[in-house]
């Protein structure tokens, strides 16, 4: 059993912002059931601000906790501010993750970027410059 921090367990037990947004302005869908976890992130955007963020995740304790934390960190932020939040910031906000679980935080960052990319494509016709999701698993 991985040694999770109290913060991770708190977000795992009581995940924030779980669910779907039926009229979402952008949806990020990252991961693949063949290799493991899947994250779906929904955003509502008004005047360039993330007014609502929700998620659904198929994955372990760390995957659920990082999904929950990233929604908390970016809600109410402008798109530019949200894009500055890295996977490392998510890990720090959770008081760390076991080394084998760090890839879960990359998934959270990618799901957010994916949702913003989707929003930009729909609203401006052009996606997030340079957005390319990481490989889900770190190279062995």
């Amino acid at each position: 059993m991985p040694a999770y921090s109290e913060k991770v367990m708190d977000h795992f037990k009581n995940p924030r912002n779980v669910g779907e947004i039926p009229d979402a302005d952008g949806i990020g869908h990252i991961g693949n059931p063949v290799c493991g976890d899947i994250m779906e992130l929904y955003i509502k955007v008004k005047d360039n601000v993330l007014t609502d963020v929700k998620f659904k995740t198929f994955g372990c304790g760390a995957a659920i906790a990082t999904s929950s934390m990233i929604t908390e960190l970016v809600k109410g932020k402008t798109l530019d501010e949200a894009l500055k939040i890295s996977n490392r910031a998510v890990v720090e906000a959770l008081d760390g993750l076991p080394p084998a679980k760090l890839h879960c935080s990359v998934l959270a960052e990618d799901a957010l970027k994916g949702a913003i990319d989707d929003y930009l494509k729909k609203s401006t016709g052009k996606g997030l410059p340079g957005f390319k999701p990481h490989e889900e698993h770190p190279p062995k």
Binding site: M1, P2, M9, F12, F58, G59, C60, G61, I64
Partner: peptide, 14 residues
């Protein structure tokens, strides 16, 4: 199906 083992295990442990 549709759920992951570790998160089931952690919930059971709780």
């Amino acid at each position: 199906e549709f759920v992951e083992g570790e998160s089931m295990l952690l919930n059971l442990d709780m």
